[in-house]
Computed example of a mutant assay.
Amino acid sequence: MSESQQAHCVVELAGEIVWLLAHKAVYWPERKMLVIADIHFGKAAAFRALGVPVPRGTTTQNLLALDTLLATYACEEIVFLGDFLHARAAHAPATVAAMLAWRTRHPGLRLTVVRGNHDAHAGDPAGALGIRMVDEPHRVGKLSFCHHPDTAAPGYVLAGHVHPVFHLRAAGTGRHGGRLRLPCFLLGQQCAILPSFGAFTGGHAVRPAAGERVYVTADAAIFALSANC
């Protein structure tokens, strides 16, 4: 793993230069576009509706995380790679009100959602949010934006759905010591899978196959495990 810590790694995908961000998103500077996977608005509310006691405030956390990115990177559009809403509980008045308040602070920002499997059950978000809803694959230049990594699509695919994490042995823990479970980007020859952006979304451990690259994020830094940043 690279010893240098930085907020992004620059990679080339199908001839396009994009930045993998420590904040679990992709930035495409040429298009002034942020790409975000699996934000899952309303997931905590859905769990509480089922009687599961989970923390409140995840919608606020998600919106503050978006604000951090928008304050850091020149952005004209955000593309969400599916699972924008977790379930119908995401239409709860408090959740919608918070999202509308955030939208009023960014009226000129274009928002595009590629529908994912959770969006199919939750339904489209409130029309007042001014979000363009599209089905996968959504192609922009040489890149195709999808929710599912196995979607047949032209060009190079950016996808979500998996919520990839990577397990690293914690320093100084010995043979049977603890492991760090870190969100990661998994880059293959034809597809890149983004980590889940949302708070309270969990993760699925991945093992890179031959030719795949892993970039893990931790403490506002991103590290290349199998390639130099």
Rank of each mutant, 00 (worst) to 15 (best):
A87S: 15
G202I: 08
A22F: 08
K43E: 01
K32F: 09
T201G: 02
Q5Y: 13
Q190G: 13
L20M: 12
A98G: 15
R179Q: 15
S2F: 10
F197L: 07
A25G: 06
P55T: 06
T68H: 14
Q5L: 12
H147Q: 06
A221Q: 09
A74C: 15
V96D: 02
H121L: 14
D150F: 15
T68Y: 15
T58G: 00
V79T: 07
V157M: 14
I39T: 07
N228T: 15
T201R: 01
A209M: 12
I193C: 02
H86S: 05
G211A: 10
L129V: 13
S2M: 14
M99Q: 09
A25K: 00
W102F: 15
M1H: 12
A89S: 11
H40K: 13
D119F: 05
L225M: 11
A209N: 10
L111N: 01
A153W: 06
S144R: 03
F145P: 00
R105C: 12
C75I: 01
S4I: 13
G211I: 10
C184Q: 03
R181I: 13
V114G: 00
V216Y: 03
A224K: 01
R213F: 12
V165M: 09
D150V: 11
G174C: 09
T95G: 02
V134F: 08
G15S: 08
R175V: 13
V206A: 03
V140I: 13
A22N: 05
Q190L: 09
R213M: 13
P55G: 08
P208A: 12
E136D: 08
I222R: 00
G108R: 09
M1W: 09
I131F: 08
F47S: 00
A14I: 10
E136W: 09
H138E: 03
S4Y: 12
I193S: 00
R175P: 06
A171H: 11
H8G: 07
H23R: 12
V79P: 00
G127D: 12
G155R: 03
P53V: 15
E16M: 14
V52W: 06
L187E: 06
A220T: 11
C9E: 06
N62M: 04
A171D: 11
H121F: 15
L50W: 04
L50K: 07
P55W: 12
E30M: 13
V96I: 11
L225V: 10
R139P: 14
G198M: 05
G172C: 08
T59D: 05
R207D: 11
A128S: 14
D83V: 12
